[in-house]
Design a protein around this nucleic acid. Structure first.
Lengths: 165, 165
DNA sequence: GTTATTGCAAACCATTTGCAAGTGT
DNA sequence: ACACTTGCAAATGGTTTGCAATAAC
């Protein structure tokens, strides 16, 4: 129960999903396979609508209905492969909850750029906090808001620029 | 323009809201006052429904409609007094974005409960990371995912329960 | 008196669900 | 054959919005 297998990281998302389905007496259908493949084709965040669009542009496979995409997302969440991280434009936003190292984001509120940074120390602290609360930790998300160097540097000269208009 | 008034922290949420409304040519109605008072009556997280219930139990003031509560929440967000932090049971969850120290959340992915924890050390680390990237920091959000003690404990006996049916 | 605001009911829209037809094992 | 899945269309439910009546300034 407390083993830490080296394999852990080597199991691909699809494999982990298949495993999950098996233990639940569920099936890996072509539709589900399509969705999972698309979900893990990149490490981008996405909302159901985007996923549906992407899946529908795949030529290699049969069409997947909106309902099935929603249902598969739910399964992926249950399997610990996806995590709902936010809400944007009235839609739920998901990100990978597996196979990608924990990291934080510096998000520039001006230009929208995102800088990823590692946060090993923070992960350690989080583990401690979780333990204190008897919380069974699966992952976390750290977003830091502000302005990136580019967007905050020109500050002193901002007025010049504006005056040119 | 670069003054840093000591008053800053002393301004009450209601005052800050009034100020905001004034600059926008909006009015501080009795309804809005009710909602704001209720929002800042405690530091709990809440969703619109809970807020509506709470507001409606106030005897000291006139009834506030569901629409108005929603509209006021939007204003409070715009004014920088509230922040949407999560989604639980299909509802948006809000927390104070003003006059309350930075903290993290343990979010249970099963029951949706949220436990707040302080994170002074983490704030320090974030400041350092931001400095390293010449990032002008304004705030951050730390969400830790997993299962709360209640939701993870019964796991070992889950099967028994199911078999009873 | 104007102009913003409210409450109501209807509209919206992402997500969920019932069900009959279809598919994997 | 059997149980799980799918797609569709309808239902759900939180949130938003149009509008006439009402309140703030």
């Amino acid at each position: 129960m407390s083993e830490r297998l080296a394999v852990e990281v080597a199991v691909s998302p699809t494999e982990k999903f298949t495993e999950f389905l098996l233990t639940k007496g569920k099936r890996l259908t072509q539709e589900r396979k399509n969705v999972v493949d698309e979900v893990f084709a990149s490490h981008q965040h996405f909302d159901p609508d985007q996923l549906i669009n992407h899946v529908s542009t795949r030529k290699d496979a049969r069409r997947v209905s909106r309902s099935t995409v929603y249902r598969t997302i739910a399964l992926l969440e249950e399997a610990g492969l996806l995590r709902k991280v936010a809400r944007a434009n009235g839609r739920d936003v998901y990100e990978h909850d597996y196979g990608y190292p924990q990291h934080g984001h510096l998000i520039c509120q001006k230009c929208g750029s995102m800088i990823e940074f590692s946060e090993e120390t923070i992960s350690k602290i989080i583990e401690k906090v979780a333990a204190e609360h008897e919380f069974r930790l699966t992952g976390h998300r750290l977003e830091v808001y502000g302005n990136c160097s580019k967007c905050s540097r020109p500050m002193q000269r901002r007025h010049d620029k504006l005056n040119f208009i």
